[in-house]
Design a protein around this nucleic acid. Sequence first.
DNA 1: AACTTACTAGCA
DNA 2: GCTAGTAAGTTC
Length: 616
Amino acid sequence: MLYAKIVLGIPVEGPFDYIVPEGLSEKIKAGSRVRVSFRTQQAVGYVVKLTKKSNINNVKPILALIDEVPILDKNILSLTKGLSEYYCCSWGEAIETALPEVLRKGRKISQNINIIEETSIRYDFRPEVTLLHDLDGDARWEIYLKSIKEALDSNRSIIVLLPDISSVLRAKEKIYAHLGIIPALLYRKQPQELSEWLKLKSGQAKIVVGTRSSIFAPLNNLGLVIIDEEHDPVYKQDQVPHYHAREVAYIRIKIEKAKLILGSGRPSLETFYSAKQDKIKYKFISRIKDFLQIKIIDTGYLDKISKQKNIFLSKYLEDSIAHTLNAQGKILLFLNRKGFATLASCISCGKSLRCPRCNVNLVYHFKDNILNCHYCNFKMQPPQICPNCNSGYIKYSGLGTEKIESELSRLFPQVRIKSLDSRKQIDFSDIDIFVSTQAIIKDPDCSFDLVGVLAIDNSLNRIDFRASEKTFALLIGLLKLTGKKMIIQTRLPGHSCFQALEKKDMDIFYAEELRQRKALKFPPYGHLGLIKLRGIKEERVKEASSSLFDRLNRFKKRNIKILSVNSGQPAKLRGNFYWQILIRGKEPRNLSSFLKNHLKDFPHSGIIVTVDIDPV
DNA sequence: AACTTACTAGCA
DNA sequence: GCTAGTAAGTTC
């Protein structure tokens, strides 16, 4: 008797044994998509192994084979296995994230498409990762195109990942213009998703350009993966399984012996650190241009005089705006409207109050008159005097509203001013001053003579251990928009973010940020895991969280630390109450298997538990 | 996840 | 003794 071990797209590990019917024994292979009855229902399943024996009592037969040829090749099978081990999900869930939606639902592939069986050619390449640290996107593309050509010449295929769809479309044009090839395009919700997927599966297309999920594209002989703007958090999926395309790429190139190029003008700390450790190659191309003027303005003094009036422009910035206007120049004023977290900071020294254990900003809660850390739940009474400089007093500030546009009209009555909050197509030609949020950075061809950065401290002071990293990436993104001058207003002029820019030496930022991460054993010196619990009844979620916290503490192993349990942020969302447990470990796979073991038999009726490894 | 079965409190 | 509502257990 022949049995198949089958996994399903549900959060249950499996695999489940099924009998292979006589007539199918020739056709069914590892990687086949089949229809099975599961409990009382029918489901789509994926064969991961064939065996002669089974220890299960009442084994059911496979109902039908869906595809003539296995839909998952060996490489995709081991990639998804690896994904499930890293990201704490079932193998079946991992397989389903790697497939187009219609195939997950069991639709048949039409007969006239010729899926080629796995090739057995093995090129003896060594997996190799390179960080291309380059501010200039065009220069990065020169290297990408050269590498793509090389891969094609040795008959290997290529995946190019970009953060968003408009970048994908631009990349397609570049590839067509330089190599004369039309690549397949993949992104979720692409109407042609299946036909593009099949082009790759059948070998008709050898290059795919796409967003995050394209890292799973079904290519034969993968030789090269390019991830542009590798620092971008959109490469992390915000649903289960919470994978990061960069991490999946690492797993995939090891399996397929391919090369990986990570390109960015502002690399993630993970990638930068790997480069520093010589674990990956490092190519540093363009520095911040010498002719750019970057000015950091300490606006601590504005707090004192802006009590009555809403003054948001330093004298220096105001003068520079006037000067630029006189010279018919264009100005961008950047204002990050996000981040309404109420912050406690000292007027005199500018330091915000931070958690002694987590080094993140404490959040002031008006209602309870208490300062609280959202990472470890540390609480303290607000101090009367600043613990840093002993003088001054502590100020609690939210973010000022953006009346900026109207205020500016008052200051510069003759000037054409516009602000952008939604992502509409804008015509820059009839605007002098443009007020915008970070949406502007995604616009590839806008350029200003002066970029003024307002209220950046709100971004820096977010309750997130990656706040500095994200702020730095944001500033570098803004820097690319100016051809001449950038002025940054801050109450924290000494922060490494700004120092790095002022001195035009990015290492200043990376060195300082790595030092802080190391002290806390936070990424890239360790890995975090976030367990989220949600349910309708607040008390029950809270109780379950603390009992899970105790349970994990009881069973915790070497190299795993259970850091904290606290209510989620927001604590209530769409009728559900949220709690979360943060753990830290050396190896993500250990975190995952530890959690799989102890969540399996954790009773959590009415509560949904999800795991996010390496949260961003 | 989606389902079945076991158990509980509330009621006449 | 009955049942609605919920907790717990199972899936090959």
